[in-house]
Design a protein around this nucleic acid. Structure first.
Lengths: 125, 125
DNA sequence: ATTTTTGTTCTATATTAAGTATAACAGATC
DNA sequence: GATCTGTTATACTTAATATAGAACAAAAAT
């Protein structure tokens, strides 16, 4: 179940993108599945059509879904090869947080444990 | 050496905060050290005084420095105890990236390796 | 004691991101 | 043919980011 919170300082369209990606990780969504229409989902979530549309295009830019004009959005098959470019992108996004964690007094082992716990909660929730 | 890039879609004040935190991790800055005045650093970096000021207050909010009015900004001693609250905050910030990494085809082991590499580059650079 | 430097505060402006709102278009579906 | 679809366009609001200039009062330097 998707649940958005406008009180958070995370944009609604990004909350939606993340939660759809989490559903994919959990296996609640699989390759070939069709996402609801932007109007239908916007109605369900109580947000504007354009907010959902932006999220879908966000997911398309990430290579997660494919939007077929005037038909709908379909989950794409995930590449199992990680490109060097993609790895560098992920690295630059992780870096500021790793620095923050280190300054909070966490060592490498504790950060690994944190990551492991996050993976567990994403898979179980 | 601090280097800002206005072409990136990361705010200048946040780039500055992160790079100061990296200097701390590397040991180039230590508890008790004084940061340059907001005007001096702004002049060196070619940005506005208020941008540096915002970064300093960002670091103060994170508990990294202490700003003494009309004197300067000093590096605070870092807490070595991680509160549950802080851990949950870090967890919620890491989560969207962990999900992205998983969908990129990375498994838990590969994410751990990525984190290890990031820590190495931050400490050596 | 005067000057300079300091962080702070205020006003102002410009740009961009985020979100909502409405409308119209044209292809796909029923 | 009517409905649903993603798309596109315009318009508006709010907030974040960044720059700019000015003024204030306390600290530091001379």
């Amino acid at each position: 179940m998707i649940c958005l919170n406008s009180e958070l300082d995370i944009p609604l369209y990004r909350q939606l993108s993340t939660q759809i990606m989490e559903s994919l990780v959990r296996g609640e969504l699989s390759t070939g599945d069709t996402l609801p229409s932007v109007r239908a989902l916007a109605g369900d979530l109580g947000v504007n059509m354009h907010t959902v549309n932006k999220s879908y295009h966000d997911l398309e830019a990430k290579g997660i879904i494919e939007i077929v004009a005037k038909k709908g959005a379909v989950i794409k098959a995930q590449d199992q090869k990680i490109t060097t470019q993609r790895l560098e992108h992920l690295s630059s996004e992780f870096k500021p947080m790793v620095v923050e964690a280190l300054l909070s007094g966490m060592d490498e082992t504790k950060i690994h444990t944190l990551i492991t716990n996050i993976i567990s909660t994403v898979r179980e929730d």
